[in-house]
Simulated assay, not measured.
Amino acid sequence: MSYGIKLRVWGDYALFSRPELKVERVSYDVMTPSAARGILEAIYWKPAIRWVIDRIHVMNPIRFENIRRNEMANRVSVNKKDMEGDRPVCRYIEDDRQQRASLVLRNVEYIIEAHFEFTSDDDRNEGKHLDMFKRRAQKGQCFHRPYFGCREFPVSFEWCDEVPQSPFEDERDFGFMLHDIDFENDRTPRFFRAIMKNGIIDCAQEVVS
């Protein structure tokens, strides 16, 4: 049995990076299910449940914008020798800054339809979890500020009872899109064919590794 919710999310910018383009970041046309799950977990997460994304409603026209962002050129390398010594484990941005172009989404709004499933026999009180998520969403509470792909693109959110009409009245095929990461199977990425019909993307499709 599953227990469903609806959440309206919006923001000025979004960047759902395509994994095949690594240096210059390019966003997918719409939000990925994994990004939607991250938003829900930022609002309410418990070990007893896991969020499953059912549908994503695209409420605003899809618009892209080119921007330049400061990024780190390299990752911070940490090894046992660094941890045991007195040298601080850090990297100074002034010594490692790079400006990179990003193709981001502008003025986005989505409605996330999702449900949660129980991961164990403990804490199986569906009414409690639903009420806690709804209360937190209505009050704007979250464990950390959710974001659209990158932390500099914060998400505004609110509880949603009814899904309004989407402006899209056609069918669009966005090709293969990242669905989620299978953390129980060596962090294997899983993809699905993202097809939007009348502004709705059905995320409960067959996924491939």
Rank of each mutant, 00 (worst) to 15 (best):
K22L: 07
K197Q: 15
K46A: 03
E126D: 12
N60H: 14
K134T: 14
V163A: 14
D202C: 03
V26A: 13
D131C: 09
S209K: 10
T188Y: 03
E113M: 10
E162L: 09
P146D: 06
E20S: 04
L130A: 10
I195V: 15
F153P: 03
E71P: 02
R50E: 03
R106Q: 07
R97A: 11
H179N: 15
V26T: 12
F16H: 08
P154E: 08
K134L: 15
M72W: 10
F118T: 03
D202M: 00
P146N: 08
W45D: 01
H144M: 11
K80A: 05
I56L: 15
D29K: 10
I39P: 00
S2K: 07
P167C: 11
G85Q: 03
R75S: 14
R124T: 07
E113N: 13
G11D: 01
S27M: 01
V58M: 00
K6E: 03
Q141G: 11
A14W: 00
G4A: 10
Y28G: 09
Y92C: 12
A101K: 15
R8V: 03
K46I: 03
L7C: 13
L7W: 04
R124Y: 10
I201M: 07
S17D: 03
R100G: 12
N125F: 07
D54V: 09
S166H: 11
K6W: 04
V207G: 02
D86A: 10
H57N: 15
N107C: 09
G175T: 01
K22R: 02
H129M: 02
V30G: 04
R87G: 04
R50H: 01
F118G: 05
I56M: 12
I49Q: 04
I43W: 01
L40N: 03
H144L: 09
S27Q: 05
R18N: 03
P146R: 00
V163W: 01
F174R: 00
H129Y: 01
A36V: 00
D95Q: 02
N74M: 06
M1D: 08
R190V: 13
R55K: 15
M1S: 08
H115K: 01
E24L: 04
D131A: 14
R25M: 15
S166I: 09
V58R: 02
F148S: 06
E24I: 12
K80Q: 09
K22C: 05
Y147M: 00
I112Y: 12
D95Y: 07
E206W: 06
P154A: 05
K197D: 11
I62G: 05
R190Y: 05
G4E: 07
D186V: 12
F176P: 02
D86M: 06
K197P: 15
A194K: 14
L21Y: 00
P189H: 06
D173A: 10
I93V: 05
E152I: 07
E109I: 04
I5A: 02
S156D: 14
R97S: 11
M177A: 14
W159M: 05
M83V: 14
F176A: 11
F183A: 07
A114G: 13
I200N: 11
S102N: 13
E184R: 09
I5E: 06
I181G: 12
R193M: 11
H115F: 06
R136I: 06
M72L: 14
R187T: 09
G38Q: 06
D123M: 02
N74G: 09
E158G: 08
M132P: 01
R91K: 10
P33Q: 06
W45C: 02
F192M: 15
E117H: 09
I62R: 02
E71G: 01
D96G: 11
G140K: 12
